[in-house]
């Protein structure tokens, strides 16, 4: 997959960082404003997909080294599983026990473990959606040879 022209590349480099920051904002403020782990994770995956589409598949060195590609794939999948599981280790003896102090409603540091759950689920959703997209691109690159 070839990239697009210089104008598109430059504009994407300027914009994608802001979209990424907006996704982090949506995740961190998930217990105060509309949004949360799912919305922010999808926004972060969208910014990564935007970079990949504008710069082309060879931008990420996907096709150059065969062994490296598979190692990164497997590592990312293991990371997703670890993150998915690690969100539930945090409960003490009961699953989903909100053991941290609740704080005041409406403050940024409040609601006990809910912001942690938001961050973990956001990472998992972003990673898994981006992996789906990357595997499609890798399939297209490999089948072209």
């Amino acid at each position: 997959m070839k990239g697009m022209t210089l104008i598109v590349k430059k504009t994407t480099q300027l914009i994608a960082g802001m979209i990424f920051m907006y996704g982090i904002y949506v995740i961190v403020h998930g217990h105060l404003t509309p949004g949360g782990g799912f919305a922010g994770g999808v926004v972060i995956a969208g910014s990564l997909i935007l970079i990949t589409l504008s710069n082309g598949g060879d931008f990420m060195k996907l096709i150059k080294e065969e062994s490296g590609t598979t190692i990164i794939e497997s590592l990312a999948t293991i990371l997703v599983i670890l993150v998915a599981v690690s969100g539930f280790i945090f409960g003490t003896k009961i699953f989903f026990n909100n053991f941290l102090p609740k704080g005041i409603v409406g403050h940024l540091v409040s609601a006990g473990v809910l912001p942690l759950y938001n961050i973990f689920v956001g990472t998992e959703v972003a990673a898994s959606i981006f992996i789906i997209f990357l595997s499609l691109i890798i399939f297209k690159e490999e089948s072209k040879e």
Binding site: G36, V42, V125, S128, L136, S143
Partner: peptide, 24 residues
């Protein structure tokens, strides 16, 4: 519905993967 939307995206992507393999 919030969880169902994200699952819908994943299952649609999996369906698309099956379809592109069949087309090849």
């Amino acid at each position: 519905v919030l969880t169902a939307i994200v699952i819908g995206l994943a299952t649609t992507a999996m369906l698309m993967a099956v379809i592109i393999r069949l087309y090849r």
